[in-house]
Simulated assay, not measured.
Amino acid sequence: MTAAVDEVRDPSLPGRLLAVERDALLPLLRSRPDADFALPTAACPGWTVRDVLAHCSAGLIRVVESRFEKGAFSPESNERDIADRAGWTNARVLDELERGMTEAGEVIAGRTDGAWDGIAFGEWVHAGDVRACLGEPGAYTGEGRPYALSLLARITRDRGRLRVHADLDEVDEPLQLGAASGTRTPARFIGDSATLVRLYTGRAPDGASYELTGATAEELNLYG
């Protein structure tokens, strides 16, 4: 697999990532017993699987309905979103999540500055959190991986993050992340793509073998 990263924003990319993950994740979740939704997640301390899904569905519906009041996506807002859905059935949470993953892509594409593209990437990462908690394969990988890596490369570049040359086990061509700088030699990562995603999103590498030179894991974390 080759990770192609366009210098020019592809507005359809977030929607494609959401659609691919929707088609894979929702049938999996609908097949799980209610008890699984109460499992605690390692990636999001204090949140259960259901809490993560409620957070995801709320965020996407906020995008669909263009509701971005002051403090949206703050820790306090996230907790309120989860609390607002406390009386919902798990099926209702999944229905809202499916709607969000279906409709948010078009709205995100309409933001010509790409400011909301990171929301789609974050939703895909949270889907990986859920998969990891449930012991399902495909956490931070799966069919959405090429789209997610392309988004990650562009997001890190647009945010002026440290330049990183990533040699990924599953990808034919090196992935260039971050922005070029004349003052610092680019860092280098060697390992699998799931571990790269974990490092960039503040998740523990989970015992995976990798090499990172010229930077620390803390410097890569987008959310740190």
Rank of each mutant, 00 (worst) to 15 (best):
M1V: 05
T2D: 03
A3H: 03
A4S: 02
E7V: 15
E7N: 13
V8W: 04
V8H: 09
R9V: 07
R9K: 14
D10T: 05
P14R: 04
G15A: 08
G15N: 05
R22W: 08
A24K: 02
L25N: 06
P27V: 02
P27E: 04
L28C: 02
L29T: 10
R30W: 05
R30G: 11
R32E: 14
R32H: 12
D34F: 07
D34H: 10
A35M: 04
D36W: 13
D36Q: 06
F37M: 14
L39I: 00
T41D: 01
W47V: 03
W47I: 01
D51G: 07
L53F: 11
A58E: 05
A58D: 12
G59Y: 12
G59E: 07
G59N: 11
L60S: 14
I61A: 14
R62M: 07
V63W: 11
E65F: 00
E69M: 07
G71W: 03
A72Y: 14
A72Q: 13
F73I: 01
E76D: 08
E79Q: 06
D84P: 01
D84L: 14
R85Y: 06
W88V: 01
T89S: 15
T89H: 11
N90H: 13
A91V: 07
R92V: 07
R92G: 02
E96P: 04
L97I: 06
R99A: 01
R99W: 13
G100I: 08
M101G: 04
T102G: 00
V107I: 12
V107E: 02
A109P: 08
A109D: 07
G110R: 15
G110C: 13
T112P: 01
I119W: 12
A120L: 05
A120R: 02
A120E: 04
F121E: 04
W124F: 09
G135D: 12
E136P: 00
A139Y: 04
E143S: 11
R145G: 00
P146K: 02
P146Y: 03
L149Q: 14
S150Q: 11
L151P: 13
L151R: 11
L152W: 11
L152Y: 12
L152C: 09
R154L: 14
T156A: 09
T156M: 09
R157F: 15
R157M: 06
R159A: 12
L162S: 04
R163T: 03
V171T: 10
D172A: 15
E173K: 05
E173R: 15
P174S: 06
L175E: 10
A179P: 08
G182E: 15
T183Y: 04
T183M: 10
R184A: 15
P186N: 09
A187Y: 10
F189L: 12
G191R: 11
S193E: 12
S193H: 11
A194D: 10
L199R: 03
Y200D: 01
G202R: 05
A204Q: 15
D206F: 00
G207Q: 09
A208K: 14
A208E: 06
S209Q: 14
L212W: 13
T213N: 07
T213M: 02
E219C: 04
N221E: 11
L222Y: 08
Y223S: 07
G224V: 03
